[in-house]
Design a binder for these strands. Structure first.
Lengths: 128, 128
DNA sequence: ATAAACCGTGACATTAGTGTCAGGGTCAAC
DNA sequence: GTTGACCCTGACACTAATGTCACGGTTTAT
């Protein structure tokens, strides 16, 4: 199939499909006129890419294990665990930071609403 | 004082101080040789800017109320509440998304570690 | 008078996926 | 034989604060 059809089927923009190809995530052959031609398997590939992108992984990370997971279950792809754990650590770091900022924000909003008189606003610390 | 001293005192890079000025957050006069000259009050201004940047506000948002909060308590600056509330809403949206992604990640990691056989990985949804 | 430390502006890079435009081929249908 | 739908590549924009480099002027001390 050509790129337009793959785009319609997967809901991924043509622009993004070309990008995934440039990042080495998806393969296509070229028709004599230069158009990309995709195997039906490309639908699965794109769906899998979407899934991992939704986990917040980068195309570079995905490329490190995509070939494997397209052929096996994730559990058989040793490359994937380090990526998951790194991402999890990153998420937790971000969650902690956002939680801290949220607490500071709520504090300030509450103070304003309650007309607090002597609140000190010296140090909100969160590494930015 | 000149920019180097203000930078040392506040711990903010010279680059950033110039940036804040371009964004209209901090004022300076120019010495005859073209160097910026800062009032001692600039230290407070920069400290205040740092504080709001650490809350995740942009320089544009800060500029909407900085003049006011430098003269009054926050509670007297009507401009600040909409900014706080907008930021809080954004933080909560991000927290929800990160929490969802984290749950998906933990699920997958657990599945791999437990050697689950029939787990389905169809739809992780979180708007990216 | 020369080196060192300071200051100035302007511009590009960083993140990373996606939108969008320019400029141009290909092909089917009417 | 022309319209319209499809495809191609390449490039810039976007977010937004900060780092960094180029290139050049100023001041201070030796």
């Amino acid at each position: 199939m050509r790129i337009g059809e793959l785009s319609r089927i997967t809901g991924v923009s043509i622009r993004s499909l070309r990008h995934y190809e440039k990042q080495g995530l998806i393969a296509s052959i070229r028709l004599p006129n230069g158009y990309r031609d995709y195997s039906p398997l490309a639908e699965d590939t794109v769906a899998t890419i979407k899934l991992y992108l939704n986990l917040g992984l980068t195309t570079e990370q995905i490329s490190s294990f995509l070939t494997c997971v397209l052929k096996n279950k994730e559990a058989f792809c040793a490359e994937i665990m380090p990526v998951y754990e790194q991402k999890l650590a990153e998420i937790e770091r971000q969650l902690a930071q956002l939680t801290q900022i949220k607490a500071n924000l709520v504090d300030r909003i509450t103070s304003i609403q309650h007309g607090d008189q002597d609140k000190k606003y010296e140090e909100d610390q969160d590494d930015h």
